[in-house]
């Protein structure tokens, strides 16, 4: 499903402040995989995730998603990929705080032009599924960190994506909420969703069957 080959990412190339964020990264993720990518701060984890999501482009190397060369995609095609195939949840949640949980969940469909009443009903069902049945109408900035992350997951589920990328999803959560979130992600993976978690939390990484480690921009298989 995802193939990275010889990916390199250099910030400020050919300048005194040149930084190699990723070096010769090779990675293959198959449908249904539950992958953790770990590493210390500054090791390039988030850069790798952004490249996977099409938010950033690699300096060199090839990235294929379902056989399509993402490196050669236009901005518009990458945006379509994020809208239809890949969802991202962030440590900072990536939600619009002043809007209700429901409005946040249906937002990708409004952007993609696929919004209708059925989507609204589906969003309500998914929110109930992730334990937010009573908070549908609440503005997101009135919810706890754990609830916000669930809203982000509900949004991804409503989008019917194939891959869920999570960037430090438990970073802003307490231990109980973190465990609950990982449990939810595990269940989603068991239902067929491909999940990639970028984290420095080893407890979270241990729950994933496949793990990679990033050190100084170099990726190696840990498990």
């Amino acid at each position: 499903m995802i193939q990275l080959s010889g990916i390199e990412k250099v910030y400020n190339p050919r300048k005194p402040t040149e930084v190699y964020a990723l070096r010769d990264v090779n990675l293959e993720i198959n449908p249904g995989d539950f992958v953790a990518i770990t590493g210390p701060s500054g090791s390039g984890k988030s850069t790798l995730l952004h490249i996977l999501a099409g938010l950033d482009t690699a300096t060199s190397g090839k990235y294929f998603f379902r056989g399509q060369d993402v490196s050669a995609m236009s901005d518009r095609e990458k945006c379509q990929m994020r809208n239809k195939k890949i969802a991202i949840i962030l440590q900072s949640f990536g939600l619009i705080g002043t809007e209700s949980a429901l409005n946040n969940v249906v937002l990708p469909h409004i952007i993609g032009g696929t919004y209708n009443r059925k989507i609204d009903q589906k969003a309500r069902r998914v929110l109930a599924q992730v334990g937010l049945g009573n908070a549908i109408k609440k503005p997101v900035n009135q919810l706890s960190g754990g609830q916000r992350q669930r809203v982000a997951i509900a949004r991804a589920l409503t989008m019917n994506v194939e891959v869920l990328l999570a960037d430090e999803p438990t970073g802003a959560l307490d231990q109980q909420n973190a465990e609950s979130l990982v449990q939810l992600l595990t269940e989603l993976n068991q239902n067929g969703l491909t999940v990639v978690i970028v984290t420095h939390n080893m407890a979270v990484a241990e729950k994933c069957p496949i793990a990679y480690a990033l050190n100084d921009g170099r990726l190696s298989r840990a498990r």
Binding site: A53, L55, D75, R76, C79, Q80, M81, R82, N83, K84, I88, L90, G94, L95, I96, L107, P108, I111, G112, R155
Partner: peptide, 10 residues
């Protein structure tokens, strides 16, 4: 940023 993340072009 959220719009961009969810697939709206700049």
């Amino acid at each position: 940023s959220v719009f961009f993340l969810l697939g709206m072009t700049r």
